[in-house]
Write a protein that binds this DNA or RNA. Structure first.
Length: 115
RNA sequence: UGAGUAUGCUGGGUAAUCGCGGAUAUAAAUGCCGAAAGGCUGUAUCUGAGGAAAGUCCGAGCUCCAUAGGGCAGGGUGCUGGGUAACUCCCAGUGGAGGAGACUCCAAGGAAAGUGCCACAGAGAUAUACCGCCGAUGGCCGUUUUACGGCACAGGCAAGGGUGGAAAGGCGAGGUAAGAGCUCACCAGCAGCCAGGUGACUGGCUGGCUAGGUAAACCCCACCUGGAGCAAGACCGAAUAGAGGGGCAAUGGAACGGCCCGUUCCGCUCCCGGGUAAGGUCGCUUGAGGUGACGAGAGAUCGUCAUCCUAGAUAAAUGAUUGCCACCCCGUAAGGGGAACAGAACUCGGCUUACAGGCACACUCAUGUG
Protein backbone atom coordinates (compact mmCIF):
# COMPACT_ATOMS: atom_id res chain seq x y z
CA UNK A 1 0.00 0.00 0.00
CA UNK A 2 1.03 3.51 -0.62
CA UNK A 3 1.34 6.11 2.03
CA UNK A 4 -1.63 8.38 2.42
CA UNK A 5 -0.11 11.39 0.76
CA UNK A 6 0.21 9.51 -2.51
CA UNK A 7 -3.45 8.49 -2.50
CA UNK A 8 -6.32 10.33 -4.09
CA UNK A 9 -8.96 10.86 -1.43
CA UNK A 10 -11.33 13.78 -1.72
CA UNK A 11 -14.53 13.88 -3.66
CA UNK A 12 -13.59 16.99 -5.58
CA UNK A 13 -10.29 15.44 -6.66
CA UNK A 14 -12.15 12.48 -8.10
CA UNK A 15 -14.75 14.63 -9.73
CA UNK A 16 -12.14 16.84 -11.35
CA UNK A 17 -10.19 13.88 -12.70
CA UNK A 18 -13.21 12.07 -14.09
CA UNK A 19 -14.69 15.16 -15.72
CA UNK A 20 -11.61 16.87 -17.12
CA UNK A 21 -9.03 14.12 -17.37
CA UNK A 22 -7.61 12.37 -20.40
CA UNK A 23 -8.48 8.72 -20.88
CA UNK A 24 -6.39 5.83 -22.16
CA UNK A 25 -7.23 2.15 -22.00
CA UNK A 26 -6.25 -1.36 -22.91
CA UNK A 27 -8.10 -4.59 -22.35
CA UNK A 28 -7.43 -4.86 -18.60
CA UNK A 29 -7.29 -1.25 -17.38
CA UNK A 30 -8.60 2.25 -17.97
CA UNK A 31 -6.54 5.25 -16.84
CA UNK A 32 -7.96 8.70 -16.11
CA UNK A 33 -5.26 11.33 -15.90
CA UNK A 34 -5.00 15.07 -15.22
CA UNK A 35 -2.16 17.43 -14.50
CA UNK A 36 -2.17 19.46 -11.30
CA UNK A 37 0.77 21.75 -10.68
CA UNK A 38 -0.37 22.69 -7.15
CA UNK A 39 0.87 19.42 -5.72
CA UNK A 40 4.43 18.20 -5.38
CA UNK A 41 3.84 14.49 -5.98
CA UNK A 42 1.40 12.49 -8.02
CA UNK A 43 -1.74 11.05 -6.44
CA UNK A 44 -3.32 7.80 -7.50
CA UNK A 45 -6.51 5.82 -6.89
CA UNK A 46 -7.74 2.43 -7.96
CA UNK A 47 -11.35 1.53 -8.66
CA UNK A 48 -12.58 -2.02 -8.94
CA UNK A 49 -16.31 -2.28 -9.49
CA UNK A 50 -18.71 -4.93 -8.40
CA UNK A 51 -18.82 -6.40 -11.89
CA UNK A 52 -15.33 -7.76 -11.35
CA UNK A 53 -16.33 -10.20 -8.63
CA UNK A 54 -16.88 -10.72 -4.94
CA UNK A 55 -15.10 -8.75 -2.24
CA UNK A 56 -12.20 -11.17 -1.98
CA UNK A 57 -11.48 -10.98 -5.69
CA UNK A 58 -11.77 -7.21 -5.79
CA UNK A 59 -9.47 -6.74 -2.82
CA UNK A 60 -6.89 -9.01 -4.38
CA UNK A 61 -6.88 -7.03 -7.62
CA UNK A 62 -6.64 -3.71 -5.80
CA UNK A 63 -3.71 -4.91 -3.78
CA UNK A 64 -1.87 -6.15 -6.81
CA UNK A 65 -2.49 -2.84 -8.59
CA UNK A 66 -1.15 -0.90 -5.61
CA UNK A 67 1.88 -3.14 -5.35
CA UNK A 68 2.68 -2.73 -9.03
CA UNK A 69 2.29 1.04 -8.81
CA UNK A 70 4.42 1.20 -5.69
CA UNK A 71 7.27 -0.63 -7.35
CA UNK A 72 7.20 1.67 -10.35
CA UNK A 73 6.26 5.00 -8.81
CA UNK A 74 9.84 6.31 -8.78
CA UNK A 75 9.67 6.52 -12.56
CA UNK A 76 6.29 8.24 -12.76
CA UNK A 77 6.24 11.98 -13.46
CA UNK A 78 5.06 14.25 -10.69
CA UNK A 79 2.17 16.75 -10.54
CA UNK A 80 -0.58 14.41 -11.75
CA UNK A 81 -3.80 12.80 -10.55
CA UNK A 82 -4.27 9.23 -11.79
CA UNK A 83 -7.22 6.87 -11.50
CA UNK A 84 -6.92 3.27 -12.65
CA UNK A 85 -10.16 1.40 -13.26
CA UNK A 86 -10.15 -2.36 -13.58
CA UNK A 87 -12.11 -3.90 -16.45
CA UNK A 88 -13.95 -7.21 -16.32
CA UNK A 89 -11.26 -9.09 -18.23
CA UNK A 90 -8.74 -8.53 -15.46
CA UNK A 91 -10.20 -11.43 -13.46
CA UNK A 92 -7.69 -14.23 -13.02
CA UNK A 93 -4.80 -12.37 -14.61
CA UNK A 94 -1.37 -12.85 -13.07
CA UNK A 95 0.73 -10.22 -11.32
CA UNK A 96 3.19 -10.09 -14.23
CA UNK A 97 0.50 -9.37 -16.81
CA UNK A 98 -1.07 -6.66 -14.68
CA UNK A 99 2.33 -5.02 -14.36
CA UNK A 100 2.84 -5.13 -18.14
CA UNK A 101 -0.60 -3.68 -18.71
CA UNK A 102 -0.07 -0.78 -16.33
CA UNK A 103 3.37 0.05 -17.68
CA UNK A 104 1.97 0.03 -21.19
CA UNK A 105 -0.63 2.65 -20.23
CA UNK A 106 1.94 4.80 -18.44
CA UNK A 107 4.21 4.67 -21.50
CA UNK A 108 1.36 5.59 -23.81
CA UNK A 109 0.64 8.78 -21.89
CA UNK A 110 4.31 9.68 -21.52
CA UNK A 111 4.20 9.56 -17.75
CA UNK A 112 7.27 7.35 -17.70
CA UNK A 113 10.08 7.18 -20.17
CA UNK A 114 10.24 4.04 -22.28
CA UNK A 115 13.08 1.76 -21.35
C1' U B 1 -14.10 -54.28 9.47
C1' G B 2 -18.11 -52.09 6.60
C1' A B 3 -22.58 -49.01 6.37
C1' G B 4 -24.81 -45.20 9.05
C1' U B 5 -26.82 -41.53 13.03
C1' A B 6 -25.72 -37.51 16.20
C1' U B 7 -22.54 -33.83 18.79
C1' G B 8 -18.30 -30.76 19.41
C1' C B 9 -13.69 -28.72 17.55
C1' U B 10 -10.30 -27.15 13.65
C1' G B 11 -9.93 -24.07 9.00
C1' G B 12 -1.75 -25.07 7.80
C1' G B 13 3.03 -23.94 10.74
C1' U B 14 7.66 -21.32 10.82
C1' A B 15 11.54 -17.91 9.07
C1' A B 16 13.48 -13.83 5.95
C1' U B 17 13.28 -9.29 2.66
C1' C B 18 10.28 -5.15 0.65
C1' G B 19 5.56 -2.46 1.82
C1' C B 20 0.73 -0.66 4.41
C1' G B 21 -3.17 0.60 8.79
C1' G B 22 -3.34 1.39 14.23
C1' A B 23 -1.30 2.22 19.28
C1' U B 24 2.73 3.80 22.43
C1' A B 25 7.48 6.06 23.00
C1' U B 26 10.94 9.32 21.01
C1' A B 27 13.36 12.87 17.63
C1' A B 28 13.32 17.24 14.32
C1' A B 29 11.92 22.78 13.37
C1' U B 30 8.82 29.37 17.19
C1' G B 31 8.89 23.83 10.22
C1' C B 32 5.12 22.85 6.19
C1' C B 33 -0.36 22.50 4.30
C1' G B 34 -5.17 24.72 5.64
C1' A B 35 -9.71 30.29 6.53
C1' A B 36 -10.34 27.24 10.71
C1' A B 37 -11.07 22.63 12.77
C1' G B 38 -7.28 19.62 12.07
C1' G B 39 -3.40 17.15 9.55
C1' C B 40 1.80 16.10 7.63
C1' U B 41 7.84 13.35 8.63
C1' G B 42 11.81 9.69 10.57
C1' U B 43 13.08 5.73 14.04
C1' A B 44 11.96 1.79 17.67
C1' U B 45 8.57 -1.66 19.96
C1' C B 46 3.85 -4.00 20.00
C1' U B 47 -0.29 -5.20 17.11
C1' G B 48 -3.59 -6.05 12.62
C1' A B 49 -10.00 -10.51 9.32
C1' G B 50 -13.88 -15.08 9.91
C1' G B 51 -16.33 -19.59 11.30
C1' A B 52 -19.22 -18.11 8.68
C1' A B 53 -16.48 -11.40 8.76
C1' A B 54 -21.63 -13.38 4.02
C1' G B 55 -27.33 -13.19 3.45
C1' U B 56 -29.40 -8.81 6.28
C1' C B 57 -33.92 -13.07 8.08
C1' C B 58 -35.18 -12.46 13.60
C1' G B 59 -33.96 -10.49 18.74
C1' A B 60 -31.47 -6.79 21.81
C1' G B 61 -28.01 -2.80 23.46
C1' C B 62 -26.92 2.29 21.90
C1' U B 63 -28.66 7.14 19.43
C1' C B 64 -32.37 10.68 17.82
C1' C B 65 -37.53 11.62 17.13
C1' A B 66 -41.89 13.73 23.27
C1' U B 67 -40.69 11.26 28.60
C1' A B 68 -42.29 6.93 23.49
C1' G B 69 -48.02 8.40 25.57
C1' G B 70 -53.86 6.45 24.86
C1' G B 71 -57.51 4.12 21.27
C1' C B 72 -58.47 1.85 16.48
C1' A B 73 -56.40 -0.29 12.30
C1' G B 74 -52.13 -3.05 10.81
C1' G B 75 -48.11 -6.60 11.82
C1' G B 76 -46.00 -10.82 14.49
C1' U B 77 -46.20 -15.34 17.40
C1' G B 78 -49.19 -19.94 18.28
C1' C B 79 -48.44 -27.96 22.11
C1' U B 80 -46.10 -27.77 27.48
C1' G B 81 -42.36 -26.48 31.13
C1' G B 82 -37.73 -24.12 31.61
C1' G B 83 -33.25 -20.83 29.93
C1' U B 84 -32.09 -15.78 28.45
C1' A B 85 -31.17 -8.75 28.27
C1' A B 86 -34.46 -10.51 24.43
C1' C B 87 -36.16 -13.68 20.45
C1' U B 88 -39.59 -16.50 15.62
C1' C B 89 -33.47 -18.78 19.31
C1' C B 90 -31.78 -22.78 22.79
C1' C B 91 -32.76 -27.04 26.32
C1' A B 92 -35.98 -30.83 28.26
C1' G B 93 -40.60 -33.08 27.46
C1' U B 94 -45.86 -34.14 25.06
C1' G B 95 -48.49 -35.44 20.56
C1' G B 96 -48.18 -36.70 15.31
C1' A B 97 -45.28 -38.42 10.77
C1' G B 98 -40.94 -41.28 8.77
C1' G B 99 -37.00 -45.12 9.49
C1' A B 100 -34.94 -52.12 10.65
C1' G B 101 -32.40 -49.03 14.27
C1' A B 102 -29.22 -45.06 16.37
C1' C B 103 -32.29 -41.04 15.19
C1' U B 104 -34.77 -37.36 12.11
C1' C B 105 -38.83 -34.10 10.72
C1' C B 106 -43.52 -30.95 12.13
C1' A B 107 -46.44 -22.98 11.08
C1' A B 108 -48.50 -28.66 16.40
C1' G B 109 -54.53 -23.15 19.32
C1' G B 110 -59.87 -23.22 17.39
C1' A B 111 -63.45 -26.62 11.77
C1' A B 112 -70.50 -28.73 17.20
C1' A B 113 -69.21 -18.93 16.28
C1' G B 114 -69.95 -17.89 11.27
C1' U B 115 -68.58 -17.53 5.93
C1' G B 116 -65.93 -19.32 1.70
C1' C B 117 -63.56 -23.25 -1.17
C1' C B 118 -63.18 -28.71 -2.32
C1' A B 119 -60.61 -28.62 -9.70
C1' C B 120 -61.29 -33.06 -13.14
C1' A B 121 -64.27 -37.25 -12.79
C1' G B 122 -68.93 -38.48 -10.81
C1' A B 123 -76.07 -39.14 -10.24
C1' G B 124 -74.34 -36.63 -5.88
C1' A B 125 -68.82 -33.01 -2.48
C1' U B 126 -73.09 -31.51 4.21
C1' A B 127 -75.12 -33.38 -0.47
C1' U B 128 -77.29 -37.27 -4.02
C1' A B 129 -79.81 -41.81 -6.38
C1' C B 130 -76.89 -43.34 -12.42
C1' C B 131 -76.47 -48.73 -12.46
C1' G B 132 -78.50 -51.53 -8.68
C1' C B 133 -81.32 -54.14 -4.38
C1' C B 134 -86.30 -54.67 -2.53
C1' G B 135 -91.22 -54.03 -3.58
C1' A B 136 -92.99 -56.60 3.17
C1' U B 137 -97.28 -52.47 2.79
C1' G B 138 -100.58 -50.21 -1.01
C1' G B 139 -101.78 -50.79 -6.48
C1' C B 140 -102.53 -53.74 -11.06
C1' C B 141 -102.74 -58.78 -13.40
C1' G B 142 -103.23 -64.23 -13.25
C1' U B 143 -104.64 -68.79 -11.00
C1' U B 144 -106.01 -74.52 -8.59
C1' U B 145 -108.94 -67.76 -4.64
C1' U B 146 -108.94 -65.62 2.83
C1' A B 147 -103.21 -68.30 -0.29
C1' C B 148 -99.54 -68.23 -3.91
C1' G B 149 -97.18 -66.35 -8.30
C1' G B 150 -96.16 -62.25 -11.61
C1' C B 151 -95.55 -56.74 -12.89
C1' A B 152 -92.08 -52.86 -11.15
C1' C B 153 -96.91 -48.26 -10.69
C1' A B 154 -96.65 -45.83 -5.77
C1' G B 155 -93.00 -46.36 -2.50
C1' G B 156 -88.64 -48.17 0.51
C1' C B 157 -82.96 -48.76 0.73
C1' A B 158 -77.90 -46.94 0.51
C1' A B 159 -75.41 -53.04 1.28
C1' G B 160 -72.90 -53.85 -3.74
C1' G B 161 -71.01 -51.52 -8.66
C1' G B 162 -68.94 -47.16 -10.77
C1' U B 163 -66.25 -41.86 -10.01
C1' G B 164 -62.92 -39.59 -6.76
C1' G B 165 -57.74 -37.56 -2.44
C1' A B 166 -62.43 -37.79 0.22
C1' A B 167 -69.21 -40.52 -0.70
C1' A B 168 -72.87 -39.69 6.19
C1' G B 169 -67.25 -44.17 11.17
C1' G B 170 -64.41 -49.44 10.13
C1' C B 171 -65.05 -54.76 10.46
C1' G B 172 -67.85 -59.10 11.84
C1' A B 173 -72.45 -61.14 13.68
C1' G B 174 -77.62 -60.61 14.44
C1' G B 175 -81.67 -58.45 12.06
C1' U B 176 -84.77 -57.29 7.51
C1' A B 177 -88.87 -57.40 1.91
C1' A B 178 -84.24 -55.17 0.90
C1' G B 179 -81.43 -52.36 4.11
C1' A B 180 -79.58 -49.11 7.80
C1' G B 181 -75.72 -48.12 14.98
C1' C B 182 -81.70 -50.71 13.93
C1' U B 183 -79.14 -54.17 17.93
C1' C B 184 -74.45 -56.39 19.86
C1' A B 185 -68.78 -57.42 20.34
C1' C B 186 -64.01 -55.23 19.07
C1' C B 187 -61.45 -50.88 17.04
C1' A B 188 -61.49 -45.43 15.87
C1' G B 189 -63.77 -40.87 17.34
C1' C B 190 -66.84 -37.71 21.05
C1' A B 191 -68.54 -36.30 26.12
C1' G B 192 -68.36 -36.95 31.43
C1' C B 193 -66.06 -38.87 35.86
C1' C B 194 -61.78 -40.95 38.52
C1' A B 195 -56.35 -41.53 39.00
C1' G B 196 -51.22 -39.79 37.77
C1' G B 197 -48.34 -35.44 36.14
C1' U B 198 -46.37 -28.12 37.48
C1' G B 199 -48.27 -28.82 32.44
C1' A B 200 -48.85 -30.45 27.20
C1' C B 201 -50.92 -35.19 28.08
C1' U B 202 -51.42 -40.38 29.61
C1' G B 203 -54.24 -44.56 31.77
C1' G B 204 -58.97 -46.55 33.44
C1' C B 205 -64.34 -46.56 33.84
C1' U B 206 -69.13 -45.00 32.21
C1' G B 207 -72.42 -42.97 28.64
C1' G B 208 -74.99 -41.61 24.27
C1' C B 209 -74.35 -43.75 19.47
C1' U B 210 -71.32 -40.38 14.86
C1' A B 211 -69.47 -35.42 14.09
C1' G B 212 -65.83 -34.96 6.03
C1' G B 213 -61.37 -31.91 4.69
C1' U B 214 -59.23 -27.01 4.41
C1' A B 215 -57.52 -21.60 9.13
C1' A B 216 -48.84 -20.38 5.49
C1' A B 217 -58.57 -19.16 3.09
C1' C B 218 -61.34 -15.07 5.53
C1' C B 219 -62.08 -15.41 10.51
C1' C B 220 -62.29 -16.38 16.18
C1' C B 221 -59.23 -16.77 20.70
C1' A B 222 -54.68 -15.79 23.63
C1' C B 223 -50.14 -13.13 24.04
C1' C B 224 -46.56 -9.53 21.98
C1' U B 225 -45.77 -5.05 19.13
C1' G B 226 -44.19 3.23 18.22
C1' G B 227 -40.68 4.89 14.13
C1' A B 228 -36.07 5.42 12.04
C1' G B 229 -31.08 3.86 12.01
C1' C B 230 -23.69 4.83 13.30
C1' A B 231 -24.84 8.02 6.28
C1' A B 232 -27.89 7.07 14.12
C1' G B 233 -26.19 11.11 16.66
C1' A B 234 -22.68 14.89 19.23
C1' C B 235 -18.98 18.58 18.54
C1' C B 236 -15.47 22.03 15.60
C1' G B 237 -16.21 25.10 11.69
C1' A B 238 -14.96 30.18 6.07
C1' A B 239 -17.97 32.46 2.41
C1' U B 240 -23.18 33.23 2.48
C1' A B 241 -26.92 34.26 5.41
C1' G B 242 -29.80 32.15 9.34
C1' A B 243 -30.76 29.67 13.86
C1' G B 244 -31.50 28.92 19.61
C1' G B 245 -34.21 30.17 24.43
C1' G B 246 -38.44 32.69 27.28
C1' G B 247 -43.44 34.90 27.04
C1' C B 248 -48.30 35.75 24.45
C1' A B 249 -52.90 34.87 21.43
C1' A B 250 -56.17 32.62 17.94
C1' U B 251 -57.52 29.68 14.12
C1' G B 252 -55.68 27.24 9.81
C1' G B 253 -51.44 24.60 7.79
C1' A B 254 -47.16 21.33 8.46
C1' A B 255 -44.37 17.45 11.20
C1' C B 256 -44.36 13.20 14.65
C1' G B 257 -45.23 4.97 10.63
C1' G B 258 -51.78 4.87 8.61
C1' C B 259 -56.39 7.18 11.12
C1' C B 260 -58.44 9.61 15.73
C1' C B 261 -56.64 11.90 20.29
C1' G B 262 -52.32 14.14 22.04
C1' U B 263 -47.60 16.82 21.39
C1' U B 264 -44.39 20.16 18.68
C1' C B 265 -43.45 23.92 14.92
C1' C B 266 -44.98 27.99 11.54
C1' G B 267 -47.20 34.19 13.86
C1' C B 268 -45.94 38.49 17.28
C1' U B 269 -42.56 40.21 20.93
C1' C B 270 -38.24 40.08 24.20
C1' C B 271 -33.46 37.94 25.23
C1' C B 272 -28.96 35.38 23.82
C1' G B 273 -24.78 35.03 20.33
C1' G B 274 -24.73 31.47 17.73
C1' G B 275 -25.80 27.71 13.53
C1' U B 276 -25.57 25.04 8.07
C1' A B 277 -22.88 22.51 3.23
C1' A B 278 -17.91 20.67 1.62
C1' G B 279 -14.11 19.31 5.24
C1' G B 280 -12.46 17.64 10.17
C1' U B 281 -12.88 15.36 15.31
C1' C B 282 -15.67 12.15 18.36
C1' G B 283 -19.18 8.12 18.36
C1' C B 284 -15.22 3.52 17.87
C1' U B 285 -14.40 -0.62 20.64
C1' U B 286 -14.05 -3.12 28.11
C1' G B 287 -18.15 -6.10 26.21
C1' A B 288 -25.19 -9.61 28.11
C1' G B 289 -16.32 -10.04 26.67
C1' G B 290 -12.58 -14.27 26.36
C1' U B 291 -9.79 -18.26 29.10
C1' G B 292 -9.20 -21.55 33.40
C1' A B 293 -10.76 -23.78 38.08
C1' C B 294 -14.61 -24.98 41.47
C1' G B 295 -19.81 -25.35 42.46
C1' A B 296 -25.54 -25.81 41.10
C1' G B 297 -28.61 -28.23 37.32
C1' A B 298 -31.15 -33.84 33.50
C1' G B 299 -29.85 -29.95 29.99
C1' A B 300 -29.98 -25.03 27.79
C1' U B 301 -27.71 -22.14 31.37
C1' C B 302 -26.31 -19.84 35.97
C1' G B 303 -23.03 -18.51 40.31
C1' U B 304 -18.13 -17.61 42.70
C1' C B 305 -12.93 -16.87 42.25
C1' A B 306 -8.55 -16.11 39.38
C1' U B 307 -6.59 -14.19 35.02
C1' C B 308 -6.28 -11.62 30.04
C1' C B 309 -7.18 -6.92 26.90
C1' U B 310 -7.30 -9.29 21.43
C1' A B 311 -8.29 -4.78 14.23
C1' G B 312 -10.70 -0.04 14.43
C1' A B 313 -10.11 1.53 8.51
C1' U B 314 -13.28 5.62 5.95
C1' A B 315 -12.08 6.08 -2.48
C1' A B 316 -11.41 2.32 3.14
C1' A B 317 -4.84 -1.13 6.19
C1' U B 318 -3.67 -7.31 6.76
C1' G B 319 -0.16 -7.30 0.47
C1' A B 320 4.27 -9.00 -2.80
C1' U B 321 8.44 -12.42 -3.20
C1' U B 322 11.08 -16.64 -1.25
C1' G B 323 13.19 -20.93 1.92
C1' C B 324 12.04 -25.17 5.16
C1' C B 325 8.41 -28.53 7.51
C1' A B 326 3.42 -30.80 7.45
C1' C B 327 -1.11 -32.32 4.16
C1' C B 328 -3.27 -34.07 -0.80
C1' C B 329 -2.46 -35.66 -6.16
C1' C B 330 0.92 -37.51 -10.32
C1' G B 331 5.70 -40.13 -10.77
C1' U B 332 10.02 -46.22 -9.56
C1' A B 333 12.85 -41.86 -8.55
C1' A B 334 14.79 -36.92 -9.29
C1' G B 335 10.93 -33.73 -9.46
C1' G B 336 6.21 -31.30 -10.73
C1' G B 337 1.40 -29.58 -9.34
C1' G B 338 -2.51 -28.41 -5.68
C1' A B 339 -4.78 -26.44 -1.02
C1' A B 340 -12.12 -24.98 0.06
C1' C B 341 -15.94 -21.19 1.24
C1' A B 342 -14.72 -16.52 1.69
C1' G B 343 -12.59 -10.03 3.53
C1' A B 344 -14.09 -6.56 9.53
C1' A B 345 -17.21 -1.26 8.69
C1' C B 346 -21.40 0.69 15.82
C1' U B 347 -21.57 -3.76 19.07
C1' C B 348 -23.63 -8.29 20.82
C1' G B 349 -27.24 -13.07 20.90
C1' G B 350 -29.30 -16.34 17.24
C1' C B 351 -31.02 -18.30 12.45
C1' U B 352 -29.98 -19.36 7.32
C1' U B 353 -26.77 -20.24 3.35
C1' A B 354 -21.41 -21.54 1.36
C1' C B 355 -17.21 -24.77 2.54
C1' A B 356 -11.14 -28.58 0.48
C1' G B 357 -9.35 -31.25 4.13
C1' G B 358 -8.48 -32.94 9.27
C1' C B 359 -9.50 -34.37 14.59
C1' A B 360 -12.28 -36.10 19.00
C1' C B 361 -16.29 -38.60 21.40
C1' A B 362 -21.02 -41.29 21.80
C1' C B 363 -24.53 -44.49 19.68
C1' U B 364 -27.12 -47.96 15.84
C1' C B 365 -27.24 -51.95 12.19
C1' A B 366 -24.64 -55.93 9.56
C1' U B 367 -20.57 -59.38 9.44
C1' G B 368 -16.25 -61.90 11.56
C1' U B 369 -13.20 -63.54 15.83
C1' G B 370 -12.64 -64.60 21.13
Amino acid sequence: MLKRRFRLKNKHEFKKTYQNGKTVANSYLVLYLIENKEIDDSKVAFAVGKRIGKAVVRNKIKRILREVYRKNMQAVKKNHYLIFIARAKIKGISYVNIEKSMLALLNKTGLISRK
